[in-house]
Measured scan of single mutants.
Amino acid sequence: RSLKHLCRLKIRKCMGRLHLRCPVFMSFLPLPNRLKAYVLY
């Protein structure tokens, strides 16, 4: 697996499933929209 994929998995694990599904939580993250979309992919 690529480093990019492993990073996405780690971020998702740290955030938890409930936060990933909450659009309000995701909108408050201080991340560029492209990065938010990548994490959610």
Rank of each mutant, 00 (worst) to 15 (best):
F28E: 14
L20E: 14
Y38W: 14
C22I: 13
C14A: 14
H19K: 12
V24W: 13
K4A: 11
L40N: 01
V24M: 06
R21G: 09
S2A: 04
K13H: 08
L29S: 05
N33H: 12
L40V: 07
R17Y: 15
Y38G: 02
P23D: 14
K4W: 11
L9A: 10
C22H: 09
F28K: 13
L35M: 04
C7Q: 02
S27D: 09
L20D: 14
R8L: 11
L9S: 10
L40Q: 06
L29K: 05
K13Y: 06
V39P: 00
M26L: 11
R34M: 01
G16I: 12
F28N: 10
G16N: 13
M26Q: 07
G16K: 12
K13E: 13
V24A: 14
R17E: 12
C22V: 11
R12D: 09
F28I: 10
L40A: 08
K10H: 02
K13R: 11
L9K: 06
R1K: 08
M15K: 01
V39E: 00
R8W: 15
G16M: 04
L6T: 09
Y38A: 04
L29D: 03
S2T: 06
L29H: 00
L6Q: 14
L29R: 04
S27K: 11
M26D: 10
V39R: 00
K10Y: 13
L40P: 03
L20Y: 01
P23C: 14
L20I: 04
H5N: 08
L35T: 00
I11K: 00
P23G: 13
I11D: 05
L31H: 03
K10V: 15
I11G: 01
L31I: 10
K36C: 03
P23L: 15
H5C: 09
S27Q: 08
G16F: 07
K10C: 06
R21Y: 08
L20Q: 08
H19C: 06
L3R: 01
S2L: 12
R21A: 08
H19F: 08
V24K: 15
R17A: 15
R8T: 10
G16L: 12
F25W: 11
K36V: 09
